[in-house]
Design a protein around this nucleic acid. Sequence first.
DNA 1: AGTGCGATTGACT
DNA 2: GTCAATCGCACTA
Length: 211
Amino acid sequence: MGRADALKPGRHKGGHPPLSRAELPVDTVSLARFLIGKIVARETAEGVVSGRIVETEAYVVGDAAGHAYRGMTPRNRSLFLERGHAYIYLAYGSSYMLNVSSEMPGIGAGVLIRALEPLEGIPIMQRNRGIERLRDLARGPGRLTAALRVDRRLDGLDLCREGSLWLGRRDHEPGEIGQSIRIGIARDANRLLRFYLRGSRFLSGLRSLNE
DNA sequence: AGTGCGATTGACT
DNA sequence: GTCAATCGCACTA
């Protein structure tokens, strides 16, 4: 499909109409569950890259593990945008994390996207990641942002509009959704706020968390 | 201005 | 399984 076709009314980049804000659940935990099976799509210079969300984590209001816990700062202000906006930050000096803001304007909370099943633009992802293996292309929060070339420049973007990065409708019904503790956090570590598509090969985390 | 620390990854035993 | 790289940011002074 050419560029002109992609921009024609009624067509959608990569065939993924964006999720409307109205259909996003207002509550953070509900949104984390809702996003399993939905699509993340990215328009790059080389074409559309997309994947199916198979793993998320909720960082809820008042959560000691959440970046909004100590109030708004220059880094985390996007977490306080109305639900459906991107909050992107750099972790460990090397990995960008992609989150979806999840509450009313002024309330800081979000959903971390932790893993994607690659759908479109797989050769582009392989180039972006410097590896071939499909299973590892977007398995992990830092890996998926590398595969999609997502960085802080996209922080604050509205993910409910088709643009350079957006959330798309699911292409089929997701399977059974599992729930576990979150990965890699010290505070509030026992809450079951991680959600995943049971049986997916594209999950991060230990196998014991994916059963 | 200095300090400590991650919502991780990749390399390695 | 272990472990260190890496750097922006929040926090202290």
